[in-house]
C-alpha cells in the first residue's frame, strides 16, 4: 500500500467517524466486510492478461460438461433445476398438487425451456374401502402440464353389502391439462401467486352401475382455477382452487344425477409449513357436492411430505373422507410415492 492510499484511507475513516454521534460505532460495512473474508488485497498479479480465458485451450467437452477447460455451454440434456418440493405432490387425480387438492404448480422438475416428467403411486386405506391411484404427468417449462391417472376403488366387504358384489372395484381414468397463466410460486411480487387454469376429463369404467346409482353420466369434465404461493417470510405455502364440477366422489360414482343435479362450484384449499428444504407438513380441505343424495362429505387431510432424494418424494397423510356410498366415517391413512425428473 502506498503512502497516498494509506493517507486516503485514514482521512476517509476519519470523515466517517466524525459524522457520527460520539460513542456510536461507524455504520458502514465497507471495512469490516473486507477484513472478514480477505484481509490481504486481492492477487492483482493472478491475471496476467485479460485475454487468458479466451486463449485458454478448450477442454474435452463431454455431454455432462464436467471438464476442466473452457466449456462451450452446460451441455446437459436435462436440467432438473426446480427447487425441491416446488413441483408439488401428485393428487389422486394425477395433477401436481397437495395430494387431494389441485395446485397451480406444474409437474416435473424442469424450468422454463425444459421438459420434465413425474409419476406417482398412491394408496388410501379406509375402514371399508381400499383406494389406489397411479399415474404420470409431463410438464413443459413452467407453462403446461398434461397428466393421466388411473383410480381403482375396491369396495371389499361393502360391495357385498351394497349388492354390487364382494370386492367390486370402481375404476376411473382422469386426463388432465393445466396451463400457468400468471405469477410464480416463489419469485416475483409477494401478492401475485402462481395462477393456473385447467381441465380434468374423467371417464368412469362403471357406466351401467353409476347410472343405476342415480348418476346422469359416466364421463365428465372439471374446470379448475388455482392460485398457489410460497410465502417465504412465513415459510408457508398457501393454495386455493375453484373447481367447477358435477362429479360424484370425484367421478368414481359418475357425474351429475338423473334427478337433474349438475355442475357446481367447489373449493379446494391447502396450507403447508416448510420445515426444511426437504420436509413440509400441512392440511388440506376439499368441498364436494352431494348430487346423488348419498350424504357425500367434504374431504380433509393432514399431510407430511419428505423429499427423500431430489427425485423421490414420499407423502403420508391422515385423511378424513367422510361418508362414501352411505358408509360413513371413512377416515384412514394415505401413502404416496412420487418420482420426478
Amino acid at each position: 500500500m502506498t503512502l497516498t492510499h494509506a493517507f486516503l484511507a485514514f482521512t476517509q475513516t476519519a470523515a466517517i467517524t466524525a459524522a457520527l454521534p460520539p460513542g456510536e460505532p461507524p455504520r458502514i460495512a465497507y471495512a469490516p466486510v473486507l477484513e472478514a473474508f480477505d484481509p490481504a488485497p486481492a492477487p492483482v498479479v493472478a491475471t496476467p492478461t485479460i485475454t487468458a480465458r479466451a486463449t485458454a485451450p478448450l477442454g474435452t467437452i463431454n455431454a455432462l460438461g464436467e471438464d476442466e477447460g473452457v466449456s462451450t455451454g452446460t451441455g446437459r440434456p436435462i436440467r432438473a433445476d426446480k427447487l425441491l418440493l416446488t413441483n408439488g405432490i401428485s393428487t389422486v387425480e394425477g395433477s401436481s398438487g397437495g395430494g387431494i387438492a389441485r395446485w397451480a404448480t406444474i409437474a416435473g422438475r424442469q424450468m422454463p425451456g425444459g421438459i420434465g416428467v413425474s409419476a406417482h403411486g398412491s394408496a388410501v386405506e379406509l375402514p371399508d374401502f381400499g383406494w389406489r391411484s397411479y399415474g404420470a404427468a409431463i410438464g413443459f417449462g413452467d407453462r403446461l402440464e398434461l397428466s393421466f391417472a388411473r383410480a381403482d376403488f375396491d369396495t371389499r366387504d361393502a360391495g357385498a353389502a351394497l349388492g354390487i358384489g364382494q370386492g367390486y372395484t370402481f375404476n376411473m381414468n382422469t386426463f388432465g391439462a393445466k396451463v400457468r397463466v400468471a405469477g410464480d410460486l416463489i419469485y416475483g411480487a409477494t401478492w401475485l401467486p402462481q395462477i393456473a387454469v385447467g381441465v380434468e376429463h374423467k371417464q368412469s369404467g362403471d357406466g351401467g352401475l353409476v347410472r343405476a346409482l342415480g348418476a346422469a353420466d359416466d364421463a365428465g369434465t372439471d374446470i379448475t382455477v388455482s392460485a398457489t404461493k410460497l410465502f417465504l417470510a412465513r415459510s408457508v405455502l398457501a393454495n386455493a382452487t375453484l373447481r367447477y364440477t358435477e362429479a360424484n366422489q370425484i367421478g368414481l360414482l359418475g357425474f351429475g344425477s338423473a334427478a337433474g343435479a349438475g355442475y357446481k362450484l367447489q373449493f379446494e384449499g391447502s396450507l403447508g409449513y416448510q420445515l426444511s428444504r426437504r420436509a413440509v407438513v400441512g392440511a388440506e380441505y376439499r368441498s364436494k357436492p352431494d348430487n346423488l343424495g348419498l350424504g357425500e362429505d367434504d374431504w380433509l387431510d393432514l399431510f407430511a411430505a419428505y423429499a427423500l432424494t431430489d427425485s423421490l418424494t414420499l407423502t403420508a397423510a391422515y385423511a378424513d373422507l367422510g361418508s362414501i356410498a352411505t358408509f360413513s366415517d371413512q377416515r384412514g391413512g394415505f401413502l404416496s410415492a412420487q418420482v420426478a425428473f
Partner: peptide
C-alpha cells in the same frame, strides 16, 4: 430454516 426463508423472502421478489 425459517430465518433462511426470511432472507429469501427479501430476495425472491427481485427476480423481475
Amino acid at each position: 430454516f425459517a430465518a433462511q426463508n426470511r432472507l429469501l423472502a427479501k430476495l425472491a421478489p427481485m427476480s423481475g
